Simulated scan of single mutants.
Amino acid sequence: MHAIAENFTLGSKEVQQTILVLNLSVAQIDLSITEGDNSVNALIDSFSYMSQHIEHIQELGKGLRQDISDEETSLKNALLTQAEVLAAKMQQAIIAFQFYDKLSQRLEHVSYGLSGLAEIVSHEMRVKSAEEWEAFKASVRKGTTMREEEELFELIFDQHIPSDEAIEIMKDRMRARMHQPVESEADEFELF
């Protein structure tokens, strides 16, 4: 069985099929990102509109006369409380949009990596060049802009940990980070 592995090489037809699959994957990722961006942009516009109106409601509520009956004071306080609850929910939605932004960035990086891989594999001289592979690997590493991407890269490429194990390690790390104070996570977001 070991001898079979040594003699295994891809023929030109297999390489062409591999390139087609890589290009299809890139196209699917790019289309998914575009669709997601369109949907999220519509949601962002809606939430921005609602947020402005919530702020206006809060201003109007605070501007109501102070010399009102107990019943009117109770209604005023209920209005302000509901506006505060809505404002908090809006903040949660913005955080969800930030997570989508991270997902979108990751998918763009995957698309870039797959495109580069297809480019190298499609040229016989490049696919056999150790320098080409090292340059490609360095390019992929340079494109890791998020902490989790860099750590995953290190686990797989530098420490040679199998991908399924690396994924579990990263899931554990990410779960642990979720329990860290919110301020440290908020600093990591770069959105809008």
Score class of each variant (00 low, 15 high):
residue 11 G to M: 01
residue 6 E to P: 14
residue 178 M to Y: 01
residue 145 T to F: 02
residue 41 N to M: 08
residue 163 S to M: 04
residue 59 E to A: 10
residue 64 L to N: 09
residue 37 D to V: 15
residue 144 T to N: 03
residue 2 H to E: 15
residue 122 S to V: 04
residue 183 E to T: 12
residue 52 Q to D: 11
residue 25 S to R: 08
residue 185 E to S: 14
residue 1 M to P: 14
residue 3 A to C: 12
residue 146 M to C: 01
residue 24 L to K: 15
residue 78 A to R: 13
residue 63 G to P: 08
residue 80 L to M: 02
residue 150 E to N: 05
residue 154 E to C: 03
residue 140 V to F: 04
residue 5 A to E: 15
residue 15 V to K: 02
residue 81 T to H: 05
residue 158 D to A: 00
residue 133 W to H: 12
residue 94 I to D: 06
residue 1 M to T: 15
residue 164 D to H: 00
residue 180 Q to W: 04
residue 14 E to H: 15
residue 179 H to R: 13
residue 179 H to T: 15
residue 180 Q to S: 14
residue 90 M to W: 05
residue 132 E to S: 02
residue 90 M to N: 10
residue 107 L to S: 04
residue 169 I to P: 04
residue 73 T to E: 14
residue 126 R to C: 08
residue 95 I to Y: 00
residue 69 S to H: 07
residue 182 V to F: 01
residue 43 L to T: 10
residue 23 N to E: 14
residue 122 S to E: 04
residue 40 V to G: 06
residue 66 Q to R: 13
residue 88 A to F: 12
residue 186 A to F: 09
residue 162 P to V: 00
residue 46 S to G: 11
residue 59 E to Y: 02
residue 96 A to K: 08
residue 13 K to F: 14
residue 120 I to H: 09
residue 112 Y to D: 04
residue 77 N to G: 10
residue 179 H to E: 14
residue 168 E to A: 03
residue 36 G to C: 01
residue 3 A to K: 10
residue 2 H to G: 15
residue 8 F to E: 02
residue 161 I to H: 01
residue 123 H to Y: 04
residue 117 L to F: 05
residue 158 D to W: 00
residue 105 Q to E: 08
residue 95 I to V: 08
residue 160 H to V: 03
residue 168 E to S: 03
residue 88 A to V: 15
residue 49 Y to C: 07
residue 52 Q to G: 10
residue 151 E to P: 07
residue 178 M to N: 06
residue 106 R to D: 07
residue 189 F to Q: 01
residue 119 E to F: 04
residue 26 V to D: 00
residue 184 S to P: 07
residue 136 F to Q: 00
residue 163 S to C: 11
residue 146 M to Q: 05
residue 9 T to Y: 07
residue 114 L to P: 00
residue 130 A to Q: 14
residue 75 L to W: 11
residue 43 L to S: 09
residue 42 A to E: 02
residue 91 Q to V: 14
residue 82 Q to S: 13
residue 150 E to Y: 01
residue 84 E to C: 12
residue 137 K to L: 08
residue 29 I to Y: 05
residue 94 I to N: 05
residue 108 E to A: 09
residue 154 E to T: 14
residue 15 V to D: 01
residue 165 E to D: 14
residue 117 L to P: 00
residue 80 L to P: 00
residue 86 L to Y: 05
residue 92 Q to C: 06
residue 99 F to E: 13
residue 121 V to M: 13
residue 168 E to C: 01
residue 95 I to T: 09
residue 43 L to C: 11
residue 171 K to W: 04
residue 83 A to K: 03
residue 24 L to Q: 12
residue 49 Y to H: 12
residue 185 E to Y: 05
residue 93 A to G: 11
residue 175 R to A: 10
residue 138 A to R: 08
residue 50 M to E: 14
residue 136 F to H: 03
